[in-house]
Design a protein around this nucleic acid. Structure first.
Lengths: 100, 100
DNA sequence: AGCATAGGCAAGTGTTCACTTGCCTATCAA
DNA sequence: TTGATAGGCAAGTGAACACTTGCCTATGCT
């Protein structure tokens, strides 16, 4: 569903999290928490960030990998292509069925 | 603010309106209403659509022009580039300060 | 003028959503 | 094994949001 994607992007804090993951991938929940606090002055609870990450993961924008007691988060920008494909399509001068 | 852009995109009905305007530009409020009803089976009031259009316009995704008692709506996909510029940037192989 | 059409303004309602609080599980070090 | 660190689950709260209802303005046709 594209619904999850746009809902995920709709929140400012989540977009900031994406920025941070874009700048430095493989961060843990606590790393993201402290970055949001330090760099962006966001006084937000750990649970809130965790929930945001869950939303981003549901949208396919974040992938996670567990190692021991750590859970690393990585950004995946691939779903964003849906947006450009939908409205910023290369305007093929007339609709085309598919391009194999 | 990019906030308006993402909030505007967050609603499914608004995205459908964008689709319709992409397919046929210069539609009036009533045209959009009947298209949503006919093609998409959306039982939605005229005011609701009007409010959606206002949100889209605030985000810069829709531009309007008045002629007599008609108000025509056109899609503007330019703001969508903010999204690709932010996370789908052409990967300059390392951060660069600015590109004048 | 009179009426229909196209659109706008504003208050009210129900739902969704972000965030918190409190407690619980799991991994690692001493 | 005890304690500390990293994370998860779930209920509760307040605000934002989509949508409706009712009424009002403006343009055009006859």
């Amino acid at each position: 569903m594209a619904d999850d994607l746009f809902k995920a992007l709709a929140d400012r804090t989540r977009r900031t999290i994406m920025d941070e993951l874009a700048e430095r991938s493989g961060q843990t929940l606590f790393e993201i928490c402290s970055r949001l606090s330090m760099k962006h002055g966001l006084g937000i609870s750990r649970q809130a960030v965790s929930q945001h990450l869950a939303v981003l993961e549901a949208a396919g924008l974040v992938e996670t990998r567990r190692e021991g007691r750590y859970k690393y988060h990585d950004l995946d920008t691939a779903p964003l292509r849906q947006i450009t494909d939908r409205w910023l399509a290369p305007d093929p001068t007339g609709p085309q069925e598919n391009t194999p």
